[in-house]
Design a protein around this nucleic acid. Structure first.
Length: 352
DNA sequence: CATGTTTCCTGTCTGC
DNA sequence: TGCAGACAGGAAACAT
C-alpha cells in the first residue's frame, strides 16, 4: 500500500517534476475517482483548467498541490475579485487509497534522477512521452509549462479507494497545543507560517515525520484514550500516516501487543511505539528512493519494495526474526494483525 | 462526546 | 475448469 513513506516519495517527485506546470485540460475517466469533489467531474475540470500547480505538500497520507492563477493561460470565465491572501486559496487534493498512483508522463529527467524511481512509472515505459493509457487510468491532467517538460499527470488506481478533488484551503482545525501551526511540508516562499490545509485535511493530526509534531503531547493524547493501542495508532485524529502495515511493524519493534489498552500503557511504552513507527517509516522512505522502481507499481495487495524488511506483517506462521517463534495472525477491524506471541505477549483480559 | 462498526471498490487467490 | 466467497485496506458514514 502507499503509506506515508510512499506518499512522501510521490510528493517529492511531484515537487521536482510538475510544480510550476499549468493545467491545460482534465479528463475524468472514472467519476467515482472524483467523488469527493463538490460539483462532479465538470466542476473538477473547470476549477483546475488554467491553474498553476504551485507546490507539493503532504500531511500523513494526504497530498495536495496548491493552485495559483496562471498569468499566461487565462480560462474564459468572468473576472472575479482576487482573494487578498497571498497564499493560494485552493488546492488539488489527492489520496492514493490503497492502490493509487500518480504518474508523470513526458518529463525529461536529468542527471541522477532515475526515470522509474520518481513516481512509480513502469519500466520500459518510463521516459517516453507517450499517450499510453494504463488500464486503470482514472484521471489525466494535461500539463503545459512544466520545467521538466511533463505533459501528463496520470491518476491510476486499480481499487478506486483513492480520490482527487479541488478543495478550499482553510485554517487547521486541530492545532497542537492551542497554537495554530503550519503543515509539514510547507513550500518555501509561500509564507511557511500560514497554517492552511485543504478542508478534508483540517481535522487530520500531524504525522511522525512532521518537524512541528509535539511528541510529548502526542504521548499524552494516546494515553488519554481508552482503546487498544493499534486502534489509536490508526486513528487519523490522533496521529496520521500510520497504516496497518507500519502499525504492526512498529508494535513488533516496540515489543507491544496490538490489543494492549492505551490507558494502561506506561509513558515509556507509548514513546517506544511511536519512536519505532517513526523509525520504520524513515527506513522505508530511505529505501523508497532507490530500489522500488520495478516493484512500486505492483501495489495490488502487496506492500512492494519494503517487503523484505518486514518483520511480522504478512508473515503468519513464519519465524520471528528476533526469537524464532511463529508469527501469529489475529482478526482485527475486518483485517489482520500480525504479531510475535513471545516478543509481544497478549494482555490477559482481552483474548481474541 | 468517545469509541466501535460498516461501507465503499476491484482484482487476485482459495476452496469446493 | 468454473465460480462463489474471502481477502486486501483508508477513512467517511453510521451506530452505540
Amino acid at each position: 500500500m502507499p503509506e506515508l513513506p510512499e506518499v512522501e516519495t510521490v510528493r517529492d517527485g511531484l515537487d521536482r517534476l510538475v510544480v510550476g506546470a499549468v493545467v491545460r485540460d482534465v479528463e475524468v475517466f472514472r467519476e467515482y475517482s472524483v467523488r469527493r469533489h463538490d460539483g462532479g467531474p465538470g466542476s473538477f475540470r473547470d476549477q483546475l483548467a488554467g491553474r498553476r500547480l504551485s507546490a507539493a505538500v503532504r500531511r500523513g497520507k494526504f497530498l495536495w498541490l496548491p493552485l495559483e492563477e496562471a498569468a499566461t493561460v487565462q480560462p474564459v470565465q468572468p473576472v472575479q475579485p482576487e482573494p487578498v491572501e497571498a497564499y493560494p486559496a485552493a488546492a488539488l487534493l489527492a489520496h492514493l487509497g490503497m492502490s493509487g498512483q500518480l504518474l508523470v508522463r513526458g518529463a525529461v529527467l536529468s542527471g541522477e534522477q532515475t526515470p522509474t524511481a520518481v513516481l512509480g512509472d513502469e519500466p520500459g515505459r518510463a521516459t517516453a512521452a507517450d499517450d499510453w493509457r494504463h488500464p486503470h487510468l482514472r484521471v489525466r491532467l494535461h500539463l503545459t509549462g512544466a520545467p521538466s517538460g511533463a505533459r501528463y499527470l496520470d491518476f491510476v488506481d486499480q481499487r478506486t479507494f483513492g480520490h482527487l478533488s479541488v478543495q478550499d484551503l482553510v485554517h487547521d482545525h486541530v492545532p497542537t497545543r492551542g497554537s495554530a501551526t503550519p503543515p509539514s511540508a510547507v513550500p518555501a516562499g509561500h509564507g511557511s507560517d500560514l497554517p492552511l490545509l485543504p478542508e478534508p485535511v483540517a481535522h487530520i493530526a500531524r504525522d511522525l515525520l512532521d518537524p512541528n509534531l509535539d511528541l510529548d503531547d502526542l504521548v499524552r493524547r494516546v494515553r488519554r484514550r481508552r482503546t487498544q493501542v493499534k486502534r489509536a495508532l490508526l486513528d487519523q485524529t490522533v496521529l496520521s500516516g500510520v497504516g496497518n502495515i507500519y502499525a504492526d511493524e512498529a508494535l513488533w519493534r516496540a515489543r507491544v501487543h496490538w490489543a494492549r489498552q492505551t490507558d494502561k500503557l506506561r509513558v515509556a511504552d507509548v514513546r517506544r511505539v511511536l519512536d519505532s513507527a517513526a523509525e520504520v517509516m524513515r527506513e522505508a522512505l530511505a529505501q523508497g528512493g532507490t530500489s522500488f522502481d520495478e516493484l512500486y507499481v505492483n501495489v495490488n495487495g502487496q506492500s512492494g519494495y519494503f517487503d523484505r524488511s518486514l518483520a511480522v506483517y504478512g508473515r503468519e506462521n513464519e519465524e520471528c526474526r528476533r526469537c524464532g517463534a511463529l508469527v501469529r495472525r489475529d482478526a482485527f477491524m475486518n483485517r489482520s494483525s500480525f504479531s510475535c506471541p513471545v516478543c509481544q505477549p497478549a494482555p490477559r483480559t482481552r483474548t481474541p
